[in-house]
Write a protein that binds this DNA or RNA. Sequence first.
DNA 1: GGCTGGCACTCGGTAAACTTGAGTGCCAGG
DNA 2: CCTGGCACTCAAGTTTACCGAGTGCCAGCC
Lengths: 357, 357
Amino acid sequence: MTPHADPAPRADASGDDRALNDRRAAILEAVVNQYIGTAEPVGSSHVADAPGVQVSSATVRSEMVALERDGFLVQPHTSAGRIPTDKGYRFFVDHLTAPGVLGPLQRRQVAQFFDQVHGEIETVLERATGLLSNLTSYAAVVVGPSHESATIRSAQLVGLSPQHALIVVVLSDGAVEKRTIDLENEPAAEDLAAAGAHLDAHLVGRTLRGPWTAPPSGSRPVDHLVASSLSALESLGGELESDQVFVGGPARLAESFEAVETVRSVLSILEQQLVVVTLLRDVLNRGLSVAIGTEHGYEPLSSCAVVVAPVLVDGHNFGAVGLLGPTRMDYPRTMAAVHVVGERLGERLAGGHDGGH
Amino acid sequence: MTPHADPAPRADASGDDRALNDRRAAILEAVVNQYIGTAEPVGSSHVADAPGVQVSSATVRSEMVALERDGFLVQPHTSAGRIPTDKGYRFFVDHLTAPGVLGPLQRRQVAQFFDQVHGEIETVLERATGLLSNLTSYAAVVVGPSHESATIRSAQLVGLSPQHALIVVVLSDGAVEKRTIDLENEPAAEDLAAAGAHLDAHLVGRTLRGPWTAPPSGSRPVDHLVASSLSALESLGGELESDQVFVGGPARLAESFEAVETVRSVLSILEQQLVVVTLLRDVLNRGLSVAIGTEHGYEPLSSCAVVVAPVLVDGHNFGAVGLLGPTRMDYPRTMAAVHVVGERLGERLAGGHDGGH
DNA sequence: GGCTGGCACTCGGTAAACTTGAGTGCCAGG
DNA sequence: CCTGGCACTCAAGTTTACCGAGTGCCAGCC
């Protein structure tokens, strides 16, 4: 339901990209809307029937020729209807679609979700992917922040067995990292405690980048423990680069695409978390909220569109929520869903989180 | 199971599950092997060509009739070859398949994996799914232990901001759990520390089942902090039930099945971690290492087979590795892979952690 | 007696011929 | 400039025919 009310994109045909006269825009809009619904090429007579197009099918046809010449539509074959190109979708998204609204049912789903959800950030983000994929029937992605700028708030050494201990590091963003270390010569409990305290004293305030050093403590066994802990912690540096990625509803992909081959390739992209993060980040950095078809440059996703919204916590970039569907997706609804969830998520995370209830 | 030289076992149709004479067994084996390779119904003449079957196609045909009558084979339609039923696969797995061996390439992959892999248990388990799905080209599942029997080794309270603190609990199995708590009235650092110490003193040794209580400490603000921490920790009880599940290579499912609908339903099963755990556990509990078709009772997985192996650490049940593929999977190879990885994983983890006594 | 080659038959799958109809481009007349 | 009309196109559906892999059955052979 997007009864295009805005006459913003005005006159001038002249075959150029950014400007379509009202009639062509209306025709393009009708084609996109119908194609999204039916997944079948749209013929001129159907377009002529559409509200907002008051001309005959013959006129529609001639306009369609122009739209095809300018790259907004294509014909799968002669004597078939038209299908929007990526460029056609792009124009639709940029100029023809009013900021969509969620249906009452979906609105309620969102409200209910944020009422009920509780627990740690990771849990909330994880569940949010489920919410998004339910709202839209597409696959959802949520990216949490990296720990790049987080600093160490606490370091602690806990003995697990005579041979093993765990070094537990708490970060300023609430994340907890841990590493197991081998205890070669079964140190005394006091030494363990002393090493823990020593680590805590010298690591707090640092970032995960290191350097992983601490001054001598004066005790030989303690220094040994500290050294093993520090070397174990070195691998934490790697963690800071990898943001947290949550994927929800991959099964929805199999609903969105007919070809099993497409499903496979898209799924295997989703398995590579790094790629997913990069993709979302790229799109956001380019100031887009939608990337259609090949716009994002990932070959296997050329039949996909990605809808992204940032998650801002107290005005800072926290992460992103995204959605992966076919290029013929319901953009208004999807964009609305992604936008709302991203926003609510930001509010939620800003407002703090109670651990219970 | 002694091959009963009864040429036409006419009367005992249902009882002869495990009593197939050698020839029929050889024919069944040939059918399964060829069907696994080609995914197409196998005709009598192809079976007659198979090594191990020294009779003419006519004889094969008459034996196939018997195998069909007894439910080991079916014909998709008259005048087509035969394909194995679940029962046929079952017989194949139970009686006809030698403990498979990995190829040299795969053997190397496994060796390399266990040489290189490092890090925390979770990481290892996660990566193991990747290994398994690469080895077999099917989707892999690894289930880690629940924290049911783990006890608390340490509890610590870390301030994150004036309004928030984190309660961090280290378990005897090396897992770390955390909960955020809201600080209503910005307590003093000393109170926070005191509350942490108090919690540690009284929680260590308990299980996640609780009870989440601690005696009064004598200080009002400290008790308040302790109370909020304890109530936040209550939700940890839920965690102990949910074991850790890792899924690898879901994209492989799209390779295994032709019908996109099958892919979808199997994927959506894999999304439900609880179901996956239950499934694997059920199969193991029934003493099986393979569940074929409907044997596991999950309707949407009726075209799947599940191969499972336990992961034993120091003789104790740690978890399980599993594999999900089409019923027409390469059982010998898959079973070998799952078995080897489960075993090596157990050995690996035995070197790393105490299971708590 | 059981195995085998031979034979008639079945029937899914493919290909060719034909039909259908949605959709197009073009054009002449309002 | 729009429109209705018209001839044309071509994918998809339908019909028909055919091929051949595969079967069941049987008479003869070892």
